[in-house]
Structures are given as C-alpha cells and as structure tokens.
C-alpha cells in the first residue's frame, strides 16, 4: 500500500514536470484515465464491462493487483495476445498500475447470467468441481482460492463471476498449453493441468450460469488461507 502510494506520488510529480516541459495549447484531450484508455474500450467496454465478443473479458471491479499482474504479463509476452502485447510494449510500470487501478475502481453491473447449452449433469459436475474439487484427482475446489462467493481476494485473485464460458475455457486451455503463465509458483497451471476437456467445459458452463452476488467486490487480503501457494498472491 505504501509502495503504491509512493509510486503514484512519483507519477504525479513526473506528470507535473511534463506539464512544464511540453507547454500546450488549450485544445487538449481530457486529462483523465478514461481518455487515456480509449485504446482499450472497443474491446473491453467503456467502463471495462466487457463487450459482445465472448473472448474479450470484463475488467471492471477485478482486484487491482490482479489486473496489474496481467498487464505486466502481456507487456513481457508471458501472457500472449498479440494485439495487447503490442499496445503495452513500451508503457512504464506506474502507468500500467494506473490503468489497473482505473478498471478496478469501475463498477458497472455484472451481466445477466447466460442460459447454458449444456445438460444438467454437466452443470452438476461443474458445480462439484468448483465447490468441492476432486481430491482423488488432485483438483482443489475453485472456491478454496477464488473465495466462497467466487468474488476473488485482494490483491491477486480474481473473481470468476461475470465471465463467459468461452472465455473461461479459453483461459484454462491457455494455461494447459503454456500460452498463459502467471508468476511462479503458477498455481493455476497446476490446477488446469489436472483438468480434462470435459472438466473445463463443465466448470466454465456452471460458472457462467451463476447469478451476480449482492456484493461482487473481492474480499480483503488474508480473509482465508489458500490450499497452496500462488506467486500472484503474496502472503
């Protein structure tokens, strides 16, 4: 928190210096984060609420630390999606942090849960994996990390609600194929590595049918202990 405050103070100082350095006419774009992230909004929505494209994720309200980790991973190519890798390539850390803070602090309503095209049995299998896991196959319950309400935990664990099935299964697939990696130890890679195609379909479908919770905010850091360590979630 202190480090975050210091970083943003430094940013404000550099910004002030910039105002002096390039003195401008009054006809300027608004000096806001909203104007600065217009390059992102055609894909992620004006407030980060997502768009009709099922592979473009919602950003709004996710933990700032999680979003920042993703931006760092896209910038270095550790997480691959070429259009975003390209946009972020030459942006400095404090700016990525400011973008993460911006989307984390937006709270457009969660989307209506989508009717799912899979059978009741498949949904039941998905629910079982998410809430209890499968000890016999070394699969921890998703809720053990993503929270009992699946709303995530500050600073590094995202909620799993408001995401569409196609996106969730693409991400689990990306972990299995190594195109998405997180800070080591990459606990999600371990989890995804134990899932079969059928598990992925089931859990992704069940998550997408969940109604929006009364309070979608991620719970504070340290609210519960993780079953094993995750590099993205410092303890």
């Amino acid at each position: 928190m202190l480090a975050r405050a210091a970083a943003s103070a430094a940013l404000i100082v550099t910004l002030a210096a910039f105002d002096g350095a390039v003195a401008q006419t009054t006809n300027q774009p608004p000096d806001t984060m909203a104007a600065r992230v217009e390059a992102c909004t055609p894909c992620h929505g004006n407030k980060g609420e997502g768009t009709s494209d099922v592979y473009f994720p919602r950003l709004a309200g996710k933990p700032a630390g999680y979003l920042y980790n993703q931006l760092l991973a896209f910038r270095s190519g550790r997480r691959k999606y070429p259009p975003m890798n390209y946009l972020l390539e030459f942006l400095p850390d404090p700016y990525l942090e400011a973008m993460a803070d911006y989307f984390a602090s937006e709270h457009p309503p969660l989307p209506q849960p989508a009717p799912s095209g899979v059978s009741k049995d498949v949904l039941a299998q998905g629910e079982l994996l998410a809430t209890s896991g499968d000890a016999g196959r070394n699969i921890p319950a998703c809720v053990s990390c993503h929270g009992p309400g699946l709303t995530g935990m500050q600073p590094g664990i995202p909620g799993l609600l408001g995401l569409r099935a196609a996106y969730v299964s693409a991400q689990l697939g990306a972990w299995r194929y190594g195109t998405r990696t997180a800070k080591s130890p990459d606990c999600m890679q371990l989890v995804a590595g134990h899932l079969t195609e059928a598990d992925v379909t089931a859990v992704a479908a069940w998550l997408a049918t969940r109604p929006a919770p009364a309070d979608p905010a991620p719970v504070p850091k340290g609210t519960y202990a993780l079953p094993f360590g995750c590099g993205s979630q410092p303890n």
Binding site: L11, R36, A39, P42, P94
Partner: peptide, 11 residues
C-alpha cells in the same frame, strides 16, 4: 520521462 502516460489509439 517527458510523456509518462501517453494517450492511445485502438486497433
């Protein structure tokens, strides 16, 4: 240093 928070253009 002179432009730490540039504005962007969408693809």
């Amino acid at each position: 240093k002179g432009n730490p928070m540039p504005y962007g253009m969408p693809p």
